[in-house]
Design a protein around this nucleic acid. Structure first.
Lengths: 245, 245
DNA sequence: CGCCCACTTGAACGTGTTCAAACGTCGTGG
DNA sequence: CCACGACGTTTGAACACGTTCAAGTGGGCG
């Protein structure tokens, strides 16, 4: 039953983007899972690996990234409890990027076979899982727009909007405040900026009373202002109607 | 049988990333499809639409894009014959971006229902379609890396590498040369650059004898040189073994 | 012929980078 | 208890990559 309650965050996440009936929900929560705790900075899967299990984040914070020659790093996405950041490996055998933990993170590892069985028996679950990966793709699209056409300022604001909305959807916010265990170096690698510039942008956001970031905690002081600065429209997250902020 | 031969490009594309048996291939090529010809600059689907059909590119060239306030545009991906650029709408009801044609383009429209039926009867086809969208996502990841951490020069080289390899996989290259009906303005919107800068980078690529672009045709003069300049590794396209360049 | 559009060029400008150094905090060990 | 080192944050100043503005070229087509 440890397992059962651990997969609860997953069904909750799935239901933020798709419908499930009680039988489906129960079947999902009965999936065989091995819980592992990962240390900060530890890789969960690496570029080139051929995983045979999927990794569901139960607690903590993970991120996808890719390294370039010369030591540059680009962060591709952040993952919060309820996410399965390597679900794509059900159909893509080799990892084209790496997945790491940012803080001590609990992950539930579920064998591919078990998920395939489940998906075979419940077509709607199949659809819900596919949908998960499609929302991932939609998020990538939005990041491309940000990196290509938004200023560093708007881009940073946009990332904070996205994180607030996603964290809120799994119930991990208190008011307009949430835990974000990111250093400015990690923010820089996600935003395609230098550390120095990220630092200056954060100060700018604070000086305008839009956001403060201190001690791994983000507090949005002016949601409308932040949204406007970012031109943030949560449609790309494809939440079910009514969940929008 | 017009339809049958029109879907051939699709099965060929699918088989570049997944296996199909003859029965599956035949079932796919028997899908009901309405052919439509689209004019250059015409939108196929628009942000906010709720399509009920998928659009398979039979001939021509299409692209996804998103507009920002102030008229800025970011191009998200390019699509060649065999691609189904709005496959994600099987599970995501509203388009979070637009899809347009760059040249006169023939597209086959296939009702969602027909694809769902097919996928229900052939689990491997279901998988192959999912895989298609996952390769899309992998391509987005690579674009994020380029926009975030590659110089304009390497980024441009990388895009040309990607296009050559993809076009080659559907048999539309002759040697190291292929049709690429893009203006420099469109390249700029894909690369997150200004038109002026794209122009200068193309001149640089030509002066180094890596690539020439003239009259809508790209000729790669030095593939190894281009690959190196781009740090291009086609792994992210997830071709089946043996198809790599 | 003349217009439109894409491409090209030059020069000034600006956003964001790089380099270098200093500050604060926290955990460790003497 | 304090010294020390590690790490993240902050600041200043010079620099560079890419943008913007402005003008001019060249080809295709009515």
């Amino acid at each position: 039953m440890a397992v059962r309650s651990n997969l609860r965050s997953f069904t909750q996440k799935l239901e933020s983007v798709a419908d499930l009936d009680p039988e489906e929900r129960a079947a999902i929560e009965r999936l065989p899972a091995t819980i592992r705790t990962l240390e900060p900075g530890q890789d969960i899967v690496r570029q080139g690996d051929r995983p045979t299990q999927c990794c569901l984040i139960v607690e903590g914070f993970a991120f996808r990234y890719k390294m370039l020659r010369g030591g540059k790093r680009q962060i591709l996405s952040f993952h919060i409890p309820g996410d399965i950041p390597d679900l794509q490996n059900l159909y893509l055998d080799v990892m084209d990027h790496s997945l790491g933990a940012l803080v001590p993170t609990q992950a539930a590892f579920i064998p591919h076979g078990a998920i395939r069985d489940l998906a075979g028996r419940f077509p709607r679950v199949f659809g819900a899982l596919w949908r998960e990966t499609l929302v991932d793709a939609a998020t990538y699209r939005e990041w491309i727009v940000g990196l290509g056409r938004r200023s560093a300022y708007a881009r940073t604001a946009h990332l904070l909007c996205e994180l607030l909305v996603r964290v809120k959807a799994v119930g991990l916010t208190s008011d307009y405040s949430f835990a974000l265990p990111l250093t400015q170096a990690e923010l820089a690698d996600a935003l395609g900026l230098s550390i120095v510039h990220v630092n200056r942008i954060i100060q700018l956001l604070r000086s305008r009373n839009l956001v403060t970031m201190r001690g791994g905690k983000v507090t949005v002081g002016d949601w409308e202002g932040l949204r406007t600065a970012a031109e943030f429209d949560p449609a790309y997250l494809h939440f079910k109607a009514g969940l929008a902020v």
